[in-house]
Nucleic acid binder design. Structure first.
Lengths: 341, 341
DNA sequence: GTACGTCATGAAAAGGCTTTCAGCAAGAGG
DNA sequence: CCTCTTGCTGAAAGCCTTTTCATGACGTAC
């Protein structure tokens, strides 16, 4: 059978072979590759020719083993798939594009176990820095990790690591969103919140309550519905509420995906948005500007955040002082809300 | 100033130190780590204790340098951010979860340059296999890459690499979708297609034409509108068409995102879906089941595809024979289409 | 009691590269 | 003509493992 010959990975000669081929020492070749020192013009040419001929590719692993720098930054997102994190990642990638650093991505899958594994893998592979986009790990564990590798955190504020944490005022933004509804005259406002285990979900819910109590309105526990940040859960929860004939005139969803789910539930019951029910989301996903009607929501400047995060990583790696900027969450007024009749 | 002490990365001793600490040779330690051979119980315990004390972590790089296997598989998607590829990636991650292999992701950004760079980086880092989710590279280049590392391709059929290519019958599916519209009585059907440079876009467009000519209907060039697979482009193109008062009763969008854009353009003009205009998308993104109305579209079983791809990689790596399965694209009938009055 | 196979263990090489250190030639200064 | 720089180049050590090979110790068979 053919095919077993493939065992030998075509791997374009080593620095040794190049040196022999060009009639110089490996040190000289290394110097040419890295531009570490001047080398006579004729040798340089000989070496370059040899590299061509042998299809030489430096072995990054060997280099990293010696220098201790891999020129990679590990990025772990709770979920690469989520449109929200995806946009942050885009920003990170963009900011790293014209630097010698390469991002290496991995998912944490919202699970302590998988996240731990992903972190370990990346550290073993000697990433020069680690960027966590959300995390399910405890503060202690995180501090531990920070001792092993430069660590930058998004969406978590860990005591002791403040300089490398970027968080947003979720609570304040949720308060604003809810208040907007209140100012439009709504009093019975449903809130679809995410899992109690997630910090963002908690904070947004707190903001919702802040707004209500701040305006002297009563809290209605029956209007606080739990979902899992996906469309289906919201559609289901809201349908139950509708079936129970609990009255409400507005919905504040914990994220845009749940807003979409809520929207469909309403549509199924013949309720119009915004005429019968006002709807607000959170995140401003790219798709949310194109829903019917376009969704009023809270914009998280994810792309810029990604860029800022990456730039901070770069600074840290360069040993330069760097502080993470603050980002504002802004309410994007579109067409899914209107004054209560 | 404090802080400069951090230069020394806390790095949990080497196998050498462990050996010294435990009073054995490095070979013995290595054997214990890898379970390569029997080791006396007392030494084993001594070594394990030493590893604990020194917080020993094997250096993967050194290991890879010797064994030639990194236990990673590189995954490059045209765009990690696109909901479509994201779901494929989820499948890949899932299938790799309980194997010793780790995925390492990277984006090609729909650009030959970036894709080339991403491939190089991954190969330099010695991934054991490479999985390309879409590619802008030429057949020749791809064959070249396949010579350097086991290569599996999704969305491309490269002569010579057929065994490792997974493609879907985009053309046939587009034909089906269009025919569905024709069977509902539609005659003037708009097609929003992607960039001419993309194979998928081409094929879907060809399928659309196949359906028309196959049913003996005339082609109307003015109804074929170009977009870029994003919402905005579709909204714009369709708005122009509407402004030009070109009549049509149905729209077949090249993907779901463009369908969303079209949907909004229609909404802006007071056209109802499906009452005034029928709409079909392509991809069946998770969000498309929750649009208003829920979108009729072509489902690509992305998650399963991701899993199949990953399993194939695993087989190839294990040296086992493996063939990529075939996947069917199915038309998901929801509520955005209806018979022409 | 000698010879031999078995088995745990250690020494050393290998893997591909960077970097320190020493060497050597050439030009400058006396 | 000799000494001192200056500057390019090569030898060799080192990074952290795995793996081959050799070495004893030990038990068994003859």
């Amino acid at each position: 059978m053919a095919g077993h010959g493939k065992r030998v990975k075509k791997q374009g000669g080593t620095i040794n072979e190049v040196a022999r081929e060009a009639g110089v020492s490996v040190s000289t070749v290394s110097r040419i590759i890295n531009g570490t020192a001047f080398v006579a013009e004729d040798k340089r040419r000989a070496v370059e020719a040899a590299m061509q001929r042998l299809e030489f590719r430096p072995n990054y692993l060997a280099r990293t083993l010696i220098t201790g720098r891999s020129m990679t930054v590990g990025v772990i997102a709770e979920d690469i798939v989520s449109p929200f994190y995806a946009d942050v990642i885009r920003g990170v990638e963009q900011a790293l594009l014209d630097t010698p650093y390469q991002p290496v991505l991995n998912s944490g899958h919202w699970s302590t176990q998988y996240e731990t594994r992903a972190i370990d893998t990346l550290i073993y592979r000697k990433v020069d820095a680690l960027l966590l986009l959300g995390s399910t790990l405890s503060d202690d564990t995180l501090r531990d990790v920070a001792g092993r590798v430069p660590l930058i955190l998004f969406g978590r504020r860990v005591p002791g690591l403040e300089d490398h944490c970027l968080t947003l005022d979720q609570r304040g933004a949720a308060l604003n969103a809810t208040r907007h509804l209140i100012e439009l005259g709504h009093r019975r406002i449903v809130h679809l919140h995410g899992p109690p285990g997630q910090q963002d979900a908690q904070e947004r819910r707190a903001g919702y309550r802040d707004a209500l109590t701040g305006c002297g309105l009563p809290l209605h526990p029956e209007l606080e519905l739990q979902g899992d940040f996906l469309e289906q859960s919201a559609a289901q929860a809201l349908t139950h509420l509708l079936d129970a004939r609990v009255p409400f005139t507005a919905v504040f969803a914990g994220n845009d995906q749940m807003a979409a789910g809520a929207r469909l539930a309403l549509y199924r019951r013949g309720l119009r948005v915004p005429d019968d029910v006002s709807l607000i989301g959170f995140d401003d996903l790219p798709a949310s500007a194109f829903t019917i009607p376009p969704l009023t929501t809270v914009r998280q400047p994810t792309y810029q955040i990604g860029q800022a995060l990456a730039r901070h990583v770069l600074n840290v790696l360069a040993g330069q002082p760097s502080t993470l900027p603050d980002f504002d969450l802004t309410l994007i007024l579109r067409e899914s809300t209107r004054p209560l009749r």
